[in-house]
């Protein structure tokens, strides 16, 4: 069994204190502060990262249990010099204000668009068995695990729809 965890393509040894959450491992041990701690209890989504393709709350999982896993954080999605389409859209549509929930929103939205493509259903899906579409109502439900206290939701939805439509056109 590997005793390392892959973060944005780089292998790192697991933390020595098993209590270390994946979130604290990223922030404290690796200095990857892009992933935010908003509540530490899975109640806000600011700590969302993508593990083996699935978005999760990094605060509610132990880093030591992710040996061999492939983790993508906000730092792995884009940089100021080379931002991802969602990052560009969030800036264009002002899909943030204070910016603290934003990396979590972007990670979440990145995985969410893949989930729609993969046909995952949501509480907003009228029909569980038909094709899933990135409608405003679907995006609102699927992004409800990421709180934004500044109240940028309307712009977040606009940014994501923009990218979803570009994706459809591509």
């Amino acid at each position: 069994m590997p005793d390392t965890i892959t973060i944005n393509g780089t292998d790192h040894p697991l933390p020595s204190d098993p209590r270390t959450s994946l979130l604290d491992f990223l922030r404290q041990d690796l200095g990857l502060h892009g992933t935010k701690k908003g509540c530490d209890h899975g109640q806000c989504g600011a700590c969302t990262v993508i593990v083996n393709g699935m978005r999760i709350n990094s605060c509610l999982t132990l880093a030591a249990l992710h040996d061999g896993d492939d983790v993508t954080t906000i730092e792995g999605l884009g940089t100021p010099e080379n931002p991802s389409p969602l990052q560009v859209a969030f800036v264009e549509h002002d899909g943030y204000q204070c910016g603290y929930c934003t990396p979590g929103q972007v990670c979440s939205a990145t995985a969410m668009l893949d989930e729609i493509k993969a046909g995952f259903a949501s509480d907003a899906s009228a029909d569980l068995t038909s094709e899933m579409k990135a409608t405003a109502e679907e995006i609102r439900e699927r992004m409800s695990g990421n709180l934004c206290r500044c109240g940028a939701y309307a712009n977040i939805v606009a940014a994501i729809r923009d990218v979803a439509e570009q994706g459809d056109a591509a």
Binding site: R55, I56, N57, A111, M112, A121, S122, L128, G145
Partner: peptide, 25 residues
Amino acid sequence: DRIRADYPVLARAILAGATQQLRNR
């Protein structure tokens, strides 16, 4: 597929709970 088709009450209950991030774990 079969849960969505044959046991939709279960799929619906799960989707009504928590968030995608939490349901993934």
